[in-house]
Structure formats: structure tokens, C-alpha cells
Amino acid sequence: MRDARRAFPVVFLGLLALVPVVAHLTGEPYYLTVFSRIMVFGLAALGLNLILGFGGLVSFGHALYLGIGAYAVGILSAHGVTSGFAHLGAALAVGAVAALLIGLVCLRTSGMAFIMITLAFAQMFYFLAVGLRQYGGDDGLSIPARSAFGPLALQDATVLYYVIFALLAATLYVLHRVVHARFGMVLQGCRENERRMIALGFPTLRYKLAAYVASALICVLAGVLLANLTQYASPAYMQWVVSGDLIVMILFGGMGTLLGPVVGAAAIIAIEDVLTAFRLGLPWGIDQVVNAHWMAILGALIIVVVLTLKQGLYGWLVHRAARAG
């Protein structure tokens, strides 16, 4: 079990690292885009899972932070600021202030109230973005060029891919340290029994708030990357559906582990991609039915995975590997 848990992240990241090579060899640059997208959403799900899986705080509004990251790039670019450091700095600063204030309010509640209030904040920002007429309103705004990080040429899809990859791997490692350190143990303790943690002497609010802000900032970073990947900032990134997608990715992959949400993001996006482009030439127009109703099929799959695999897809994979080995 322990060996499988150690080997899997290495194998998984190793495969991700090879994607550009395969894409170039097969002459299918499309894979680069899909897997960049998988890693961006994997990063966001990883960030959300810090508070959801390890802190027991179900935020239904983390798309908000994706949006803050994307709009920081979009709005600054619209004003001719192309520096990536400015984009990232502004995104993280605005994200930190927003998360601090929103977290302070939301964390006064728990359970269902927490879910609803986080959703409410995300919706507020969604309509704020829709109302930004000068930045495209409903339609969002396109970003003429990717963030300029000195010699790093993000304009090249392969370079962008490896930047996203490096940030994902680094975040995985840092969070691996964090969840096992004193801070992470307090966070997990709050998930298990917060009342007991307070009685033991922990002022739990400040730890939950710190985790909430960290989790938000990882999503902000994912938002900056998403804007660079799509060269677009849209209110759609902040829709409640996106917050829901992140939660589904976490549940699908398994919330007890760090890598689970990333595996979940990969599975969900890959399945979506396969189903919408389904062309097997099956009789009776089955292909078209699958293309049109892919959501129903994905939904059924999610139900099966969540009901049958308690640890999610990743937990199941590790468990199987451990038994086989």
C-alpha cells in the first residue's frame, strides 16, 4: 500500500511529462491543449481539496478564484500591461484580500450554511464580471498575448505546458509537506471534530482561515494559467457550474488524497472529450446520441464511481496496485 502510494505520483507525473513528446511524435498538438486544461483544472481541484478533503469545508464557490486569476490577466492585458509578474502579482494580491474577507465571513458558519454562503459570494462576483461592460460584459474579453515572463515564451504551447506542469508538481509537493506538518494536522483535526479541537486549546478559526486563503490562492494561480491557456477571460469561468465541476472532480478522484483530485480532473475532462468527439460509426445513430447526451453518460459514470469506489478512482487504483504487487 505504502509503496503504491509512493510510486503512483511519480508514474502519473511521469506520464504527464511525456504528453508533449507524444503530441509532437503523432503530430497531434491538440493533446497539448487537452492535457494543459486537465492540469489547470487539476491544480484548481487540488487547491479546493485542501479545505474540502483535509479541512471538511465544502466550498461551493471556488470558481470565483479561478475568475479572479483570469480577469487579472485579462484586465491588465486590456490596458497594455503584458508583464506576467504584474499579472500574477495582481491576481494573488486581489485573490488574497478577497479570500481573507470572504473567508472571515463564511467561516463563521459551517455545514450547509457554509456551502450556501460560499456559493452566494461566487455568484456576486459572477454578476459583477457580467456587469463589466468595458471588459466584455457577458462575453468576456480575449487576451491578445500570453503573460510575458522574461525569457519564458509562453506563446509556445509546449513551454506553457511545462510551466503548468512544473507549477502543478511543485504545488503537489508543497501541499504534501503542509498536510503532514503541524498545520495540516490541525486542519484535519478540525475536519474530524472541531469542538474537540477547541477544547484542546486550538483557536481553530485562524487555521481554517489560513487554509481557506491558501486554497483560494492555488485556484487564483490556476485562473491565471487558464487565461493564458485559452487567451480569454470570461464570466463563464466563475459560474457556479465550474465550482460544482471542481467538487465532482474531487469526489471522482478521491478526496482523501492529494493526487486524487488531479486524477479526477484528468478522468472527467478526458471522458468529456471522448464522449463529445465520439465517432465509432456505430449503427442507429448511436454516435450522435452519445455526442448530444454526453452529460447524461458522464453523470451515470460519476454516480457509479462515487457509490462503488469509496476512495474515489485514485484510491481504487492505488488499492488495486497494492494488491497486485
Binding site: R177, V178, H180, A181, R182, F183, G184, M185, V186, Q188, G189, R191, E192, N193, R196, M197, L200, G201, F202, Y207, A210
Partner: peptide, 28 residues
């Protein structure tokens, strides 16, 4: 803390009284 081991449970009690818990790097 039901999902923690007995030792982890008591270690949390010790940690609560061992200064702040903003330790992000060393395994507890």
C-alpha cells in the same frame, strides 16, 4: 478525532499547548 490514531489524538493535545501550529514543513 475518530479518523486519527490513538497516538495522533494525544499528539494533537500536546501540539495545542506547544505554541502556534503554523508549521508547514516538518512532518508532525
Amino acid at each position: 478525532l475518530r479518523g486519527f490514531t490513538a497516538l495522533q489524538n494525544v499528539a494533537m493535545a500536546v501540539q495545542a499547548h506547544a505554541g502556534h501550529s503554523f508549521g508547514f514543513w516538518s512532518p508532525a
